[in-house]
Design a protein around this nucleic acid. Structure first.
Length: 1122
RNA sequence: AGUCCCGUAGCUCAGUUGGUUAGAGCACUACACUGAUAAUGUAGGGGUCGGCAGUUCAACUCUGCCCGGGACUACCA
């Protein structure tokens, strides 16, 4: 054990970070913390896997700090917190990275490069930055088991994923469906929503739109539209994609939308017609004044086209009315097309309130088309060209962007030609350019089509209600993420599209016969091996690639004898029960399924039976950025609910973004990203973490500003460091090592009891805040305590106790108290600032040996002792602080420096308890503000002027509308009225409006306004006055203090030790000598003078000149006594 | 387009169940204090609490609409 507390020259948080990092490594502190808690209640945490093929940014430090805080806190609370690192290794970003690196496109895979080689590249590429990530993890102090991470591409991980998929299949939740998906004709591939959400995928484009006229067929159903014929009858429908019109098979209306029947003329052919559109939109196309023009007066080509509204119906009235096919190039093979249907998605936001339905090119269209059996037409091929059926348009690209020949030159879009044709055929009502945002393939930069494709889906909608009800049991931080963003997402749940037509990912383990009648979903390696054996027997496979896999052998070696990725699984052919070959469905699964499988797959569940499910599921806590709401949070939740009937996590903290100083999103493109390594190096890990956590709530976006880190560095860590430096300086001098028995509370002075009370209040608040996942509140409370209470009041007022006098009980009390505060602080702050806390704790503990632990992170979290909390005392001290502050402000106003003692401070008493409260802290106030006495003035003396103020909360409900008038009136109450009120304890007044109110005590607040003849200051109801008269005696004491101050400064200038004794000679000065004589012993004891003499004249090199006041200047000589 | 978050001093942020002079720190200016000294205190300037309505005796606080920033989602005809 050491005998001296470590003393530092300066605060260097970067050095502390490095030192402590080494210390942990040397002492295996993290491992120890796990050993120590092994067998205790587990606190389950999942690390969301980062992808190691990207460089970590500052926002990762944010998310990981939050994770680390609660894991450390719970460890200190005695839980076993296992923290397994993990890597997300599959998926598009990796594939894209590889393609960029090799200079190939998706089409080249399998041609220029084999799938095998391509995947080999992916596998090596994916861990490109692993070392960088590990380095950041260590440097920022995120405790995580990096030695045994889960890796999503490992065979064991994939096996667990397959197990989950097998379970879903067993439950009938996997199906193959033909749906409308984003598709890039230019790239020849379907796109995931992930890809559509790449930045910049949605672009604002100008499209040619048209309102097409669909001619109603007269029948029993539609007859009501034909009463009094006026040309033909048309439904008007708007589209931004005229190329889908040939594939139209239906029209959708809103059930409750009101539509009007209008007689008018077609603006292109000038023919009479009757048309139908939503009432709300009529005036967007037909100016109201034109209804005044007689229909008969219309001349062809005339600008203002007359019209008459002749009927009004609900959308539901139109259901199943038939119309003529608009562009009859082809007929659907099945279904009953060309009818009006009801669609819940129809709005009157724009268009005509009637929606053209092409089931092949829109998801809504597809759904409603299937619901009504409209049939469908797909007159566009996968290259984005019209099919041969399309007559004069056959072979033309539906978007000119797809046409390689139109890259450099303008080509007429086919949309225009279709519109022209419609106009000629009396099938168009209006055509215009329209600007809207439309998704583009982020790789080819060309527009996406929605196109029918085959995909595998998870029937998440079957568990929608269960997911919603279980979501309600999750503790979301902030709550709005769960109820709002996540809740809404669940309300609008659609089936999960699992398919990705990719190469590097978990293969879908489904094998099917060609006719799709037989299929098998493989749920384990063993099952696959056995199925292959059957296929070998059936002669479909020559050998079994899994032959050397040994059942029940969980070693890595056994799992490295094969590869579950493409192309190897593609080569496997299985045999169905009726002896037919089954090929694997070539899709990969969505990588989000990989990450949603983390809880199970990280421990190779259920194959590895060394852990029970309960020991790692569900999680008590997870945390990620709010952008994961529909990503990881959802996939975790969905899998857990569907397969385990449980939540996956009980608490979820979602943090906001880290923006740059100006509030812009950080991006590589703008180059405004912040390098976390540089930040940590520059400011140290603790200041960085502290700043990220305390500057704003984690779920608010953070504007990252280095200046603010400097601030937390200086303001919080600097102050705390100073406090420790102060403590160590004097504790070392006095040899304090906390060897004395703990002094009982009642033997400690008021101020010690006060800071201990504040400390325990703080412990309570911080403990609650951490427990409530409110790290910002915890951090701010700690910082406030350090700054306001500990440093600027306790230490400031107690300085003398630490250095003055003998090693008395009072001194021991001071040391014990300050030590207790510092040590408790180290443990309170340990979760947020683990390095500094460690340094502080070990510096204290290696001398005192009070805790058996060699790390703050191995200690228990401080426990508040309610018995030490004295709210009355805290209030009293607050009052002392206020009074001192007011007294100092009066000194400032009157230009009387603090070193000049004053005789008295005057405080009017408004109630009985006030005096008691102040008396208890009187000495603190007096010494702090250098005043001799406090005098109380009771109001009977009549020298006090008072004012009265209504208590709005009380009087408001009572007086209602008169409140304002009363408040105004009370300002004018004179002293006599106030005195009467105080005497009688009630007062009635009738106001000009005739209302009478009786005010009683408590309805109002009475405050001292002023003390005539004195300088005063007030805060709330507290008034303080200062007697600024300076007697000769006070003046001489003031001079003595000035002298002491100058001598102390000289001691320091001369670099004397604080314990050195000195000999002083001073040159006599007429205005000073008396002050010296009167305060001789006081001066000597303050400056540790062994001798102090006045001399007539002092000269020489050892002489310093000092200035005590403007008029007192003299010479002095100070010498150290050896 | 929908959903959610944010908008308070030049900057970063507090602001309790609505209660009447809206706070703190940084920065700036001046003055002090200091045996913690690259720390600290006091004072000062600086605000239409994003805007407009509404509810109320009373709105930074509650409601609605709008504006700005951001995120997520999206089938927008």
């Amino acid at each position: 054990m050491k005998t001296k507390y470590k003393e530092y020259r300066t605060l260097d948080l970067t050095r502390i970070g490095n030192d402590v990092q080494d210390y942990w490594k040397e002492h295996n502190t993290f491992e120890k913390s796990l050993e120590l808690t092994k067998g205790k209640t587990p606190y389950i945490f999942y690390e969301g896997p980062p992808s190691a093929n990207g460089i970590p940014g500052i926002h990762h430090v944010m998310a990981r700090t939050i994770k680390d805080i609660f894991c450390r806190y719970k460890t200190m609370k005695g839980f076993y917190v296992s923290r397994k690192a993990g890597w997300d290794t599959h998926g598009l970003p990796i594939e894209i990275g590889v393609e960029k690196k090799l200079g190939i496109t998706k089409e080249d895979i399998g041609k220029k490069i084999s799938i095998e080689d391509y995947n080999k590249e992916c596998r090596s590429e994916v861990m490109k930055y692993k070392d960088l990530w590990d380095d950041l993890t260590v440097k920022m102090g995120y405790w995580l088991d990096l030695d045994d991470p889960y890796i999503t591409y490992s065979n064991k991980y994939i096996e667990s994923v397959w197990y989950l998929l097998g379970k879903l299949h067993q439950k009938g939740l996997l199906y193959k469906g033909y749906t409308i998906q984003p598709y890039s004709p230019a790239a020849g591939t379907g796109l995931s929503t992930h890809e559509l959400n790449q930045p910049g995928a949605y672009k604002t484009v100008k499209d040619n739109t048209v309102i097409a006229q669909f001619k109603v067929i007269r029948s029993e159903q539609s007859d009501f539209l034909f009463r009094e014929m006026f040309g033909d009858v048309y439904f008007l429908a708007w589209t931004t994609t005229p190329w889908t019109l040939p594939s139209n098979t239906g029209l959708a209306v809103g059930k409750d939308i009101t539509y009007q029947v209008i007689r008018t003329y077609n603006p292109y052919t000038f023919r009479e017609q009757t048309m139908i559109m939503a009432k709300e939109l009529v005036h967007q196309y037909l100016p109201e004044k034109n209804s005044q023009i007689e229909l008969e007066d219309y001349n062809e080509g005339q600008k203002n086209i007359p019209y008459r509204i002749v009927g009004e119906y609900k959308g539901s009235d139109f259901e199943n009315i038939r119309y003529e096919q608009l562009l009859p190039y082809a007929q659907p093979e099945e279904g009953d097309p060309f009818r009006v249907v009801i669609g819940d998605f129809v709005t009157t936001a724009d268009g005509t309130g009637i929606v053209h339905i092409a089931p092949s090119f829109g998801a809504d269209d597809f759904r409603v088309g299937r619901q009504y059996g409209l049939g469908s037409l797909t007159l566009v091929n996968k290259q984005g060209k019209f099919t041969e059926q399309m007559g004069e348009f056959a072979g033309r690209y539906v978007k000119v962007e797809y046409d390689e020949n139109c890259v450099d030159k303008e080509c007429p879009p086919v949309d225009i030609d279709i519109i022209v044709k419609l106009k000629h055929e009396n099938k168009a009502f209006k055509s215009e350019k329209y600007e809207h945002s439309y998704p583009h393939c982020w790789r080819t930069d060309k527009p996406v089509l929605y196109y029918p494709l085959d995909s595998w889906f998870i029937r998440t909608t079957a568990y929608k209600d269960k997911m919603i009800s279980l979501n309600n049991t999750i503790n979301w931080k902030p709550e709005s993420t769960g109820s709002g963003r996540f809740g809404n997402w669940l309300e609008n749940l659609v089936d999960w599209n699992l398919s990705r037509s990719r190469f590097w990912g978990t293969p879908l383990p489904i094998w099917r016969t060609e006719d799709g009648m037989n299929e098998i979903c493989i749920g384990s390696v063993l099952q696959l091996k056995n199925e292959i054996d059957k296929a070998v027997i059936a002669g479909l496979m020559k050998t079994n690639p899994l032959a050397s896999f040994k059942e029940g052998d969980l070693t890595d070696g056994n799992y490295e004898t094969f590869d579950l990725h493409r192309p190897f699984v593609d080569d496997i052919v299985l045999v169905s029960e009726n002896g037919q070959p089954m090929q694997r469905e070539t899709d990969l699964i969505d990588v989000w399924f990989d990450s949603g499988a983390v809880p199970y797959a990280q421990y190779h569940y259920p194959f590895d039976k060394s852990r029970s499910l309960e020991s790692f599921f569900p999680a008590d806590f997870i945390a990620e950025g709010v952008d994961q709401t529909r990503g990881w949070f959802f996939t975790l939740h969905a899998i857990a609910v569907m397969l385990f009937d449980s939540v996956s996590f009980k608490t979820c903290v979602s943090n906001g973004l880290v923006l740059d100083k100006a509030g812009n999103k950080m991006s590589k493109r703008l180059g405004n990203g912040v390098d976390p390594f540089e930040t940590i190096k520059k400011f140290g890990p603790d200041a960085t973490r502290w700043y990220l956590i305390t500057n704003s709530q984690p779920w608010d976006n953070l504007k990252f500003d280095e200046g603010s880190i400097t601030e937390s560095q200086r303001k919080f860590f600097g102050t705390l460091y100073n406090t420790y430096a102060f403590f160590s300086l004097y504790a070392n001098i006095d040899g304090f090592s906390y060897s004395e028995a703990e002094l009982p509370l009642n033997e400690r002075p008021e101020i010690d009891r006060w800071i201990l009370s504040e400390l325990n209040s703080l412990i309570m608040l911080v403990d609650e805040s951490y427990a409530d996942y409110e790290p910002t509140r915890a951090g701010r409370a700690i910082a406030d305590f350090v700054d306001e209470h500990l440093s600027n009041w306790y230490v400031r007022l107690c300085r003398r106790r630490f250095w003055k006098g003998e090693y008395s009980a009072d001194k021991v009390s001071a040391f014990q108290t300050l030590y207790t505060c510092l040590e408790a602080l180290s443990r309170l702050m340990a979760p947020i600032a683990p390095f500094f806390a460690e340094q502080l704790f070990t510096d204290l503990n290696t001398v005192s040996g009070k805790k058996p632990a060699d790390s703050v992170h191995l200690t228990e979290f401080p426990q508040a002792q309610p018995a030490m909390i004295d709210k009355g005392l805290e209030e009293r001290m607050e009052m002392a602080q206020k009074i001192s502050s007011m007294a100092l402000s009066i000194r400032k106003k009157t230009n009387i420096r603090v070193r000049q003692p004053l005789s008295r401070i005057l405080i009017p008493l408004l109630n009985e308890t006030l005096k008691e409260q102040i008396e208890a802290v009187k000495n603190l106030i007096l010494s702090e503000v250098n005043i001799k006495e406090i005098e109380y003035i009771s109001d009977t003396e009549g020298i006090l002027s008072k004012k009265i103020k209504p208590d709005f909360k009380k009087l408001g409900p009572k007086c209602g509308k008169d409140m304002k008038m009363i408040a105004e009136d009370m300002k004018d109450w004179n002293q006599a009225v106030i005195a009467e009120f105080e005497r009688e304890k009630s007062y009635s007044k009738t106001y000009p409006n005739g209302n009478t109110y009786t005010f009683i005590q408590g309805d109002v607040e009475i405050q001292s306004d002023d003390l005539p003849g004195y300088n005063t200051a007030s805060m709330g109801s507290l008034l303080v006055a200062l007697d600024t008269m300076i007697t000769p005696e006070l003046k001489s004491e003031g001079i003595a203090r000035e002298l002491i101050n100058r001598i102390q400064n000289l001691r320091k200038e001369k670099k004397f030790e604080v314990t050195d004794k000195i000999q002083v000679k001073i040159q006599s000065h007429p205005d000073m000598d008396e002050a010296v004589n009167q305060n001789f012993s006081y001066i000597c004891s303050e400056i540790l003078a062994q001798s102090f003499t006045l001399a007539e004249k002092l000269e020489g090199v050892e002489i310093d000149e000092i200035e005590l006041t403007e008029i007192i200047k003299t010479n002095i000589s100070i010498q150290k006594v050896d």
